[in-house]
Amino acid sequence: MMNEDKEDSLTDASAGVVAVKVDDLTVAYNYKPVLWDIDLEIPEGVLMAIVGPNGAGKSTLIKSILGILNPIAGSVSIYGKSYEKQRALVAYVPQKGSVDWDFPTTALDVVMMGTYGSLGWIKRPGQKEKKLALEALEKVGMLPFKNRQISQLSGGQQQRIFLARALVQDASIYFMDEPFQGVDATTEIAIINILKELRKANKTVIVVHHDLQTVPEYFDWVTFLNVKKIATGPVKDIFNDDNLTKTYGINYKVSIQE
């Protein structure tokens, strides 16, 4: 299809396997739908940003795909099979603010939780799981803090701990809910490096993202969402004023962002 070398990741993506497929997904908390009739195909190996205004249903979309929320209608498949069957292929990084960081536990212990899924019921983590957790801590640059109580970590460090916990799962598809929220430059760079490494390993990463300016720099795929799906596709094709205006409802210019 395309012959330029630098385009090969995109060609792979558009010609290749569909990692996540969402059909007719509709979610409502009360009467008004939060997500309306979402159809989405995410190709394998892309770094995809989900962008949209507050209340657009970005986190809800991720949570519905992961079965945390029950949609009113619609279905989700991961590599062609139901999510329940493919759970082991999927890892989740929740919003940092969703847990109580004063919980009595250490950084290493939280990262170990990433191994619980493959362990299953009752079985305790052993040396093997500990080794995996330490490796993940190393990757996010948090090894020196492994025995820290988690409340004594900075916001950025806590975010990296959450990232490490997902890395331990060694999944094929990663869902991340605002991993860049309120983190400093050091953490932002650490996360970006991890994202790039994941892409190199042909993993699919879906990120709820707020900073529109960094979308073209960090991601190669983007989905515009505002209750309905506005557009989805390669950043270079669809990340433009038109889609931004449709999504955010104001006359948006990529060139003169707020």
């Binding site: 992961l66 079965g67 945390i68 890892a91 969703s98 109580d100 939780m113 619980y116």
Partner: peptide
Amino acid sequence: FDTDYTKTLGF
């Protein structure tokens, strides 16, 4: 610690 995450692990 994290109920939602626990759900995604299949518990």
